[in-house]
């Protein structure tokens, strides 16, 4: 991947609650936490599926799962992770396996960062 891409994706917000608010409209604090929790629990399963699909080079599964993750991360304000999934989908559709493998290296660290950001928003009283 180009350095410009690496720089730009690194600079993106891990979790931008303003984006989440802009998609969902005005949410109360409790509603926002509920959305984040639901996003986390569903996205976690998709994330695991995506990791396996990439490992297995399962083309259709990579495309389908990254496609779903892209949208759900986007509306939840997970800009960086959503962009990564968008690129993974794009590279898989273009059969760019080398690029895909390079991108997949970001998946786990980005997911961990996202996990931490969500936990930070939910507070210690709501373990995810």
């Amino acid at each position: 991947m180009s350095d410009a891409f690496k720089d730009s994706i690194q600079q993106m917000e891990t979790l931008d609650l303003n984006v989440l608010q802009s998609f969902y409209g005005d949410l109360t604090d409790a509603e926002m936490k509920d959305v984040l929790q639901r996003f986390y629990h569903e996205a976690k399963l998709y994330h695991q599926r995506l990791m396996i699909a990439i490992e297995m080079q399962n083309v259709l599964e990579v495309i389908q799962v990254s496609h779903s993750l892209k949208s759900m991360a986007a509306i939840s304000g997970a800009e960086q992770y959503s962009t990564l999934c968008m690129w993974i989908e794009r590279m898989m559709r273009a059969d760019e396996l080398d690029e895909l493998m390079e991108l997949s290296l970001y998946l786990s660290p980005f997911w961990q960062e996202l996990e931490q950001s969500i936990q930070a928003q939910l507070g210690p009283e709501v373990p995810i």
Binding site: F23, R38, E42, A43, S68, S71, M72, I75, S76
Partner: peptide, 16 residues
Amino acid sequence: DDVVLMCDFLYGAVNR
């Protein structure tokens, strides 16, 4: 929508 979060999103949008 087959993604629960997206389906709920649509559901919420309409019910509003």
